[in-house]
Amino acid sequence: MPLVSTNRLHKFFGTNHVLRGIKLDVEEGEVVTIVGRSGSGKSTLLRTLNGLESIDDGVIEVDGATLEVDRADASALRNLRQKVGMVFQQFNLFPHLSAGQNVMLAPQVVKRTPKKEAEEIARRMLERVGLAEKFDAFPDQLSGGQQQRVAIARALAMSPRVLLCDEITSALDPELVNEVLGVVRQLAGEGMTLIMVTHEMRFAREVSDKLVFMHEGKIHESGHPQAMFAKPATAEFASFIGSLN
């Protein structure tokens, strides 16, 4: 049984039909990369997976937590979100809290973890992303790459079953991209289930178990990245990878 599964997923922005019946299954430990042109619905799809975008039809299931159109109340959302971590393009760290407090906050507030224990978790997570020494630094004292790694640690502190990464290197200076990708590669190696949207094609090819190409709100083509890049099955994907070079 897949860890993450969506079926018949539809989403409208006004009259704009952005997701047109998405069926996506992700197995535990799988690394899935969603690619596609701007406006193809890839970020929207990712954001529906933890309820940041509501859906207009279909069903999302993550590790037993179900989200349906007519049953997407606040507690169903929180139930889903406890299992799904998310890292954003713009990091979105809480500016009034130190790196350590950023990581501690959700366990303390959402899971009622005692402060001391939350601090231990935070130290462990920051160490995991290579920022053990930045526990007391504030977001505006950190580089973009460091902030993004804190954001990853913050998501990991809730022990999510799956981590969503929404173009997490797109806002970074080129020289900082690799330190973040390094952390993601390490997570993939540890068996973390990852679903990401990225423009880093080389990275996607290297770490992904599955590549999903979205086109006009549908999964147009998907499969193993090496095979897809070597021999695109559709003209649209061929043209997409052609436009990258």
């Binding site: 933890n50 940041l52 998310m86 979105n92 760290l93 809480f94 959700a106 959402v110 913050r154 998501a155």
Partner: peptide, 11 residues
């Protein structure tokens, strides 16, 4: 984005 980050952490 900060509200979304908190939302995504199940606040």
């Amino acid at each position: 984005g900060q509200v979304e980050a908190a939302d995504s952490l199940a606040f």
